[in-house]
Amino acid sequence: MSFLEIANIDVAYGDIEVLFDVSLYIEKGEVLSVIGANGAGKTTTLKTISGLLHPKKGSIIFNDKRIDNLSPEIIVERGIIHVPEGRRLFPFMSVEENLEMGSYNSRAYDDRFETMKKVFDLFPRLKERRRQLAGTLSGGERQMVAVGRGLMAKPEILMFDEPSLGLAPILVKDMMTAIKEIADKGTTIILVEQNIHASLNISNRAYVLEQGYVVNNGDAKQLLDDPSVQKAFLGI
C-alpha cells in the first residue's frame, strides 16, 4: 500500500461534479506533479485531500487509514499540509505570526522556534522581514511565507497549489529550487502547477488531469516530451 492512495473519487461542488473517478498514489519521499489546464480539477484534488471538500464516492487512504471523511484540522494533525493557491496569508499578522500559525497543530507547536530557524535558513529574506505585516510584502516574499508556513507544520506530505503563480521567471526558478531542497530533506511533495516545465523538472512522477479525469500519468521526464501533454497545454 502506498503512502497516500486516492481511489476512484468523485468530487462535486453542490450539483456540479468536478472530479470523475480520479485515482492516484504517492510513495514516501516522492515529488509528484499534478498538471492540467485551468479548470481541470487540480485545486479540487488538493482540497479533497486536505479535507476542505469530501468525495461523493471513493476513498483516500493515508498511512493505512482512511482520511476522506475527516475535517481539515484533523488531517493537518495527521501530517498532510496544503499550501493554498494565492498564498492566503493572514494579511494583518506579521511574518513571524504567520509562520507561528503554521505550527498550530500539536505535532509541531512545541518545536516551533527550532522549525522557524530552519525556515529562516531556507529563506533568509524572511528573517529580515519577520516583524513586517504579511499584507505589505511583495509577491515573491509572500510565497516564501506561504511555503515557510507549510514547513512550520512539520509536514509528512506537503502540497503546493500553483506556487509559481504570479511570480517573475527568476523567482519561479528560486521557488522550484527551494521546493526541491525541501524534498531532498525527506518531505513528500505534491505539486500542482500550470507551469509544467518548472514542475516536471523537479518531479519524479506526474498525473495529467483534463476536465476532471486523469488522462495520463507516468515518469515526469517522459511526460515532458509526451505529445499528449504538449497538445493539452500548448493547444497543438
Binding site: 493537518v76 493572514f90 500559525m101
Partner: peptide
C-alpha cells in the same frame, strides 16, 4: 496567546486557518 492568535487568523481567513489545523 496561542488561542488569541488563532482567533485573529480565523477572522482574517477562515479557510486558510482551517489549513493550519485550527478548528
Amino acid at each position: 496567546s496561542k488561542m488569541g492568535k488563532a482567533i485573529r487568523a480565523t477572522s482574517q481567513d477562515r479557510e486558510a486557518a482551517s489549513l493550519m489545523g485550527i478548528n
